[in-house]
C-alpha cells in the first residue's frame, strides 16, 4: 500500500455506552481505520489526531493501547502454532493487571476466570487447549476473538468484519457475546460490509465510509437504507 493515501477525512466521536457501526464498500478504508486505532505500524499518519480518554492515542504503542482499554477483534485472526492459548491469554491478562497496579492472577484464579467467561459466552472448552487459532475454523477464530475480549474487558472494542466467514449459528453466538459484554461504561465500533450483523447487534449510530471519508452518518435506519439501495447509492452521490 506504499504511497497510497487511504483515509482522508474522518471525524468520529464515540462515547461510553454507545455502539457505532462503520459500513462501506470494499476498499473504502474500514480495516485501515480499525488497524490504525489498534496501533498497526504499516501506516503513516500524515495528519489528524485520535484522543482516547484524554490521551493522544497515536503516541501509544499497541501494547499500551491494549492495556489502556482498546481491543481490536481481527478480521483475519492470525494462527500462531506453538504458542498455547492459555499461556498467551494468561500473559495478556496479567499485563493488563500490572498496568492497573494489580497483582498477577494465580494459575487457579486465572482458570476460574476463564471458566466463568466461557460459560458466559457459551463456548466449549476445546478452544483454550490448543495453540492460538491453530487449525481453528473461521467461526472458532471469531469466537476466540470475542472470548479474548471477554477476558480483557476493553473500554473500546473495535470489531473488524467480525461477521465475515461466519455461518448463521456462529454469527449468533458471536453477536450474543458482544451484547453480553456491553455495559454503560464501554463502547463498541463495528466495522462491517453487510447489514446482516446489525440484525443481531443494534447500533446507536451508523457511518458510511467511502474513499477514506465518512460520507454519511445516521441512526440504525441508515443501515436498512444501505441494504435496500446498495453502495452504488453512496458511490453515485460522491464520485463526482
Amino acid at each position: 500500500m506504499e504511497g497510497k493515501e487511504i483515509l482522508k477525512g474522518i471525524n468520529l466521536e464515540v462515547k461510553a455506552g454507545e455502539v457505532h457501526a462503520i459500513m462501506g464498500p470494499n476498499g473504502s478504508g474500514k480495516s485501515t481505520l480499525a488497524n490504525i486505532l489498534a496501533g498497526k505500524t504499516d501506516y503513516e499518519i500524515l495528519e489528524g489526531e485520535v484522543t482516547f480518554q484524554g490521551q493522544d492515542l497515536l503516541e501509544l504503542s499497541p501494547e499500551v493501547r491494549s492495556r489502556s482499554g482498546i481491543f481490536l477483534s481481527f478480521q483475519y485472526p492470525v494462527e500462531i502454532p506453538g504458542v498455547p492459548m492459555i499461556n498467551f491469554l494468561k500473559a495478556s491478562v496479567n499485563e493488563h493487571r500490572k498496568f492497573k497496579g494489580l497483582e498477577p492472577l494465580t494459575a487457579g484464579e486465572f482458570l476460574k476466570l476463564m471458566r466463568a467467561k466461557k460459560d458466559m459466552l457459551h463456548l466449549d472448552s476445546e478452544l483454550t487447549n490448543r495453540s492460538v487459532n491453530e487449525g481453528f475454523s473461521g467461526g472458532e477464530k471469531k469466537k476466540n476473538e470475542i472470548f479474548q475480549m471477554a477476558m480483557l474487558e476493553p473500554k473500546l472494542a473495535i470489531l473488524d468484519e467480525t461477521d465475515s466467514g461466519l455461518d448463521i449459528d456462529a454469527l449468533r453466538i458471536v453477536a450474543e457475546g458482544v451484547n453480553a459484554l456491553k455495559t454503560p461504561e464501554n463502547a463498541t465500533i463495528l466495522v462491517t460490509h453487510y447489514q446482516r450483523l446489525l440484525d443481531y447487534i443494534v447500533p446507536d449510530f451508523v457511518h458510511v465510509l467511502y474513499n477514506g471519508r465518512i460520507v454519511k452518518s445516521g441512526g440504525k435506519e441508515l443501515a436498512f437504507e444501505l441494504e435496500e439501495k446498495g453502495y452504488d447509492w453512496i458511490k453515485n452521490g460522491n464520485d463526482q
Binding site: V78, P81, S131
Partner: peptide, 29 residues
C-alpha cells in the same frame, strides 16, 4: 511474523515478550 507480533502486542503483551513467545513457538515444532 509481523502479523503475529502485532496480534500479541494488540493484546497488551510487550514487544520483547511477544518476540520471545514467537521464537519459542518457532522452536517448539
Amino acid at each position: 511474523d509481523k502479523d503475529a507480533l502485532f496480534f500479541l502486542r494488540s493484546r497488551g503483551i510487550g514487544e520483547k515478550e511477544a518476540r520471545m513467545m514467537l521464537m519459542n513457538a518457532f522452536a517448539h515444532e
